[in-house]
């Protein structure tokens, strides 16, 4: 959540963000009932747009095949066209050469849309701390669910999908800012400020020592 918040702050958006739905207050009966109905429909018929690039795409295919069977979640209809899809599943590493493509695909999707970042590489760059790889797709597009793993098991992906369904069920139509499109800063094309991107993609842990060549 913190990252989306940072993105919104960085983009200069004035909209107030309320992350926790205040359940103690009085809620209008009609909208809550309608919310329930709409969210029930949305959560159980997510059409995925598989943006599979690397190893995670194979595990995604395994999830979609007969053993794990994504069709149980209303996801049997793989939508390879971004226009007819609800959730972008970014499975695999995203190099800089692919970054504008991913951004364009996200922009082509219609609201409401969600993003699952599958695997370590899509979420953080993973083990590819090199000159060519985007250090986390959340520097390009907003992400709803991160699924860790290299690659995640199909159970992991399914858990991520169930988390997304849970998130969808808690959406309220009166919070219009949820479906607000963020426009990237035209001078930099970035959603979040450059200093924040540099900070996010600093090497961490063991990676710091492994940028040295031979001893």
């Amino acid at each position: 959540m913190g990252l989306i918040e940072a993105m919104r702050k960085g983009s200069g958006s004035d909209s107030k963000i309320v992350y926790d739905y205040d359940s103690s207050g009085e809620q209008p009966w009609v909208t809550t009932s309608l919310d329930f109905l709409v969210n029930w429909g949305r959560a159980n018929s997510l059409w995925p747009m598989p943006f599979g690039t690397a190893c995670c795409a194979i595990e995604f295919m395994a999830s979609a095949a007969s053993h794990y069977d994504l069709a149980r979640f209303g996801m049997e209809r793989m939508s390879f066209s971004p226009r007819q899809s609800d959730v972008l599943i970014c499975a695999g590493r995203v190099p800089f050469k692919l970054a504008p493509v991913l951004r364009r695909i996200y922009q082509q999707m219609h609201q409401p849309k969600w993003v699952i970042s599958m695997g370590a590489c899509a979420s953080s760059g993973g083990m590819f701390d090199s000159y060519a790889v985007v250090q986390g797709i959340d520097t390009i597009i907003p992400v709803d669910v991160y699924v860790p793993g290299c690659p995640p098991r199909p159970e992991g992906l399914i858990y991520g999908i169930m988390m997304l369904q849970k998130k969808i069920r808690e959406e309220r139509m009166e919070r219009g800012e949820l479906r607000e499109e963020l426009a990237p800063d035209p001078s930099s094309q970035l959603y979040i400020p450059p200093s924040r991107i540099d900070e996010l993609s600093e090497p961490f842990g063991n990676s710091v020592h492994q940028t040295r060549s031979a001893p």
Binding site: F96, P100, R104, S130, Y131, S188, Q189, S195, S201, T211
Partner: peptide
């Protein structure tokens, strides 16, 4: 040229600059 020895592993530019260059490409 990335595989030359004077090329750092994380590239010459900062991450935000690399991303900016990549995203400014019009698909």
């Amino acid at each position: 040229f990335p595989l030359r020895k004077d090329f750092p592993m994380r590239g010459r530019f900062s991450r935000s600059e690399q991303l900016k260059n990549a995203l400014s490409a019009n698909p």
